[in-house]
Design a protein around this nucleic acid. Structure first.
Lengths: 128, 128
DNA sequence: ACTGCTGTACTAGATAGATAGTACACTACA
DNA sequence: TGTAGTGTACTATCTATCTAGTACAGCAGT
């Protein structure tokens, strides 16, 4: 379910966990009212420390995506899907823009960048 | 000359400095045989610590892009331009691919991603 | 020779991220 | 009423990055 946690990604682990959970909710792999896997279980799934997951869950809670039900677990809120679908686009867009900005500043031409992007999109989406 | 060093970029500063220098050489802002700005001068330009620049210069040296001439400065090697032009494409491509991979995994459709990319490329390159 | 500039090499401290381990209050369920 | 599983809150330790400050050997130009 969460195959791509990359410790040497530059992106902090607790943030990667947040993103993965958000994407899963946006994709309706988890539905409102359901419980997320427990801190300890999710930590095993993602091969990170339980504290790291706890930090991510705290973050998701502050964003109104999940609610803590003491002694029971983290429940997905009613607004979670809406928030996460917005977040998904925002987060992805942010990263793409950042990469393209560097390309722009580095004096690469529009043609060179377009070529790279089109090639990679083809490669990544061909086996849909 | 180096307007975009961003401390909260996720990318370590010393690595950002490396990239900027590589891009400048690829763009022939510095030519083989010339000296790079001194550690202290570059540190001022980029608003970072001299130690950070020194670390970056050490990295560039190990990659064969510059040579240390004790008491004089860091001299740009004959192969620097070739190496840096390759590196420029590689580094940019790496970042773009990484962002697109996340988009792919997050179940965004090819159309949504293409739309984002095309819009941003238009926006960034229009004022060429 | 002197002075000022190089790179280089230290030490020390601050901060952020991550791991490991422990503990505790709460809830669900048999 | 136990008991097992929740979130939560600590402390301690490790690593990487960055900053600050100091020092020193080597080169260039006066």
């Amino acid at each position: 379910m969460f195959p791509n946690i990359d410790p040497q990604n530059g992106i902090p682990l607790f943030e990667q966990v947040c993103r993965q959970v958000k994407f899963a909710i946006a994709d309706q792999a988890y539905l409102p009212g359901e419980l997320l896997p427990s801190v300890r279980e999710m930590a095993q799934k993602m091969a990170v420390n339980p504290n790291t997951v706890a930090r991510s869950y705290g973050e998701l809670q502050r964003e109104g995506i999940i609610e803590s039900v003491r002694g029971t677990g983290m429940q997905i809120t009613a607004e979670a899907r809406r928030i996460c679908q917005k977040e998904r686009v925002r987060l992805i867009q942010e990263r793409i823009v950042s990469a393209l900005q560097e390309a722009r500043f580095s004096q690469l031409t529009q043609e060179e960048v377009t070529k790279i992007v089109e090639r990679e999109i083809q490669r990544l989406w061909k086996s849909k």
